[in-house]
Each structure stands twice: as C-alpha cells, then as structure tokens.
Amino acid sequence: CKNDSLIKRGDTVDVAFEKAMAMYQNEDYVDAADAFETVTRVGRGTEYGQEAQFYLAESYFKSRQYLLAASEYDRYISYYPQDERRVDAEFKAALCYYHQSPRYKLDQTPTRNAIERFQLFNNRYPDSEYVTQAANYIDEMRNKLAHKTYEGAQFYIRTEQYEAAIIYLNQTIDRFPESKWAARALVDQVETYIAYADNSILSKQQERYEKAIEAYEKFLQLFPESDMRAEIENLHDEALNKLQDVVTGEEASPEQS
C-alpha cells in the first residue's frame, strides 16, 4: 500500500532510490520528484546521488514544472560535466525554457532565454541528433518575437502614430528578416508611409511618398516571390500617382515663401 512505497527514516540509499524509481515508473511524477530530492540529499557522493539528480529533473519535466526542471538539469550539468547524458540534459534544459515561453502578447523574456540556450546547444554540439529540432524551435520562437514587434507596429498604425509605426515595422524587418512577418511589415510600411504623407503638410509629402516607394523596392529585393506581391503593387501605384500630383502641383505654383 501507499505507506510502504514512501521513503522512511532509516531506509538505505539504494532502498530509497528503488522506491523513488518505482514512483517514477508509475508516472507519479510529483511524488517521485519529492523522493528523488531526498535521495540526492542523502546519497550525495554515490552513484545513486547522480542517478537521482537526473531523474529529479526528469520528474519535474514530466510533471510540467519547467522552471524547477530547468534548474535541476542545470545542476546536473554542473555536478557531472563529464557525463554523457549532459547533452540530453542541456537540450532538455533549453526545452524547459521553450515550454515557459508565453503567448506573444506577454513578456517574452523566457522566449529569449530559450533561443539563447538552443543556440548555445547547437554551437556546442553541432553533431548532436537534436540540432535540427533545436533549429526548428529557434525559428518558431523568433517568429513569435517578430509577431510581437509587428503587433507593436499595428498598435501605432491603429492609433495613427505613423512615425512610431514605421520605427516598429523597421524593427520587424531588420531584426527578423527571415520571419514571415517581415514581408507583411514591408507591405504595411508602404501603406503607412502613404497614410503618413496624406496627413502631412505639403512640404513633407514628397519625401514621405518617396519613402513609400523605397519600401516597395526593398520588398521586391527581399521577397520577389511573395504572394503579397499584388497587394504591394497596388499600393506602389497609389504612391506613384500621389507623388506625381505633389510634384506637378509644386511646379505649377513655384515657391513663394
């Protein structure tokens, strides 16, 4: 029954470890974590201590306590740097950060940590079987960061703060050129420059329509195959026409001031 399966005072290290392992195998990860924790304490300096440290981390991982799991994997890495399971532990630790990464609308500190850990992993173990997996996770999380930056720009577009919107669209393009949000950001940038120019005083309009056209050209360079091509072409035509109007308008009435 339950009481026999718990570690008691006076149990030797190997008995305690067996009991912890039994819980782990029964998928009772919360109790297993407690038990392994005890074994690591009493079994320091023994083989059981090392095993328990690894399974302590695993138990936390499997019970989705990623914050605790990450720190136990890290402890394993620092205690047993020579062990071959270190590669697994490092990958799992990075994975723990990945699981803590929240939706894009919230603080992305865990996401940035996870990216850093996966990058470190790939630099350290370029031959590991996990490398592709790690690279995919990095892509996924960078896309999330790009999305966050892009939505920051969308806020400024909605509230008609064009300068701020353009700065944030630029961030999306410059920092995450490989993400799917970069192309979208360039289309929005053309549109935003046009809106910005429309709402500007006459003397500033020419420069801002020209910027719209610059953004269009950048798009052609970076994403010639994009399916947003038609959309941006239309915007480009609009910018060209408006620019024409401004220029001819200025010629018609030479500067007076």
Partner: peptide, 10 residues
C-alpha cells in the same frame, strides 16, 4: 516593457 506576465502588450 518587460514583466507583463498576465497583461497583454496592447
């Protein structure tokens, strides 16, 4: 900004 663990960016 950092630390908005519950409150959305917007």
């Amino acid at each position: 900004f950092t630390g908005n663990t519950r409150t959305h960016d917007d």
